[in-house]
Amino acid sequence: MIQAPPTAPPDTSLVVLKTQNLSRWYGQVIGVNDLTVDVSPGVTGLLGLNGAGKSTLFKLMAGQLKPSAGVVRVCGHDLAHHRGLYRLIGFLAEPDALYESMTGREMLVYLTRLQGFTKDEANERTQRALQRTHLLEAADRRVKGYSKGMRQKIKLAQALAHDPQILFLDEPFNGMDPVSRKESMDLIKELGAEGKTVMVSSHILHEVEAMTSRILLIHRGQILADGDIGEIRDAIERHPHRIEVHCESPRALATEFIALKDVQGLRVSSEHSLLLESDLPREVYRMLPEFALRPEMGVRSWTTLDDNLKSLFEYLVEDGR
């Protein structure tokens, strides 16, 4: 496991949320395995492939599942024994579940009132949450008529309407269009800047990168890396990068690259593509545009095969061995 110092969230000296040796098994299947994490104010990205244990971890942290072993502490208290702590927590669960017969506003007022607010306060907070999630126009329509993106937004609105200090957002951008995605990402960054402790999960690296530099990488129920995304990227740098170049003459292009000492491997992968392996891909990326300008090479495009979460995990798993 790679340990890197966290980046500077609003107040890192605080540990708002703590898990100690947290485990959860579903019969023979391990959901989360012996996980110890401290979470401070600011945005923390929880990254993992599908089935890595992100949702299980959120459910455990939000008290929706009982741990098979270990404990979750919110502000020093065990959530299982102090349900009042839910006043401090906002939770956006992954399932697409809403009160279909209610309007968006009715649902938010109801759920905000259940946080202990009076009717007037709940109305006011609902209005604010609808504004922040850009849902005002659809607020008085029945939820069952909402699009997937709007459904995600109303779920986000209910999580933040009561102004909680801690937010668990499980795949909040699922089904959102690019504009809504950007708006929601900005909102999450704002919440982090306000000093809230926001944990947001995703299986898309660049989504998380756009909101925070502090990440937790989870793989098969275990934290694989905890810290700054730059540190984790540096770890990846130690592994050769694979770049696929699509061109008219892969053999001619290979002749050019063969002289480069940073290129460890070359393979003509098909009639019109060349696969390169390099320890220092920056040099390769510097040269590629130059070759693209030479008509005899016929360079059409290039793709970095490793710039995805799966390969990142593969590297980190290899590192741990």
């Binding site: 939000a62 008290g63 929706q64 349900r83 009042g84 702590l85 839910y86 006043r87 927590i89 906002g90 939770f91 669960a93 399932p95 579940a97 809403l98 009160y99 279909e100 759920l111 259940l114 946080q115 202990g116 209910q158």
Partner: peptide, 14 residues
């Protein structure tokens, strides 16, 4: 069944 129980279980309610 509707999976809305999560909303009630993440509120400070008995």
């Amino acid at each position: 069944e509707g999976r809305t129980i999560t909303y009630l279980f993440t509120r400070p309610l008995s």
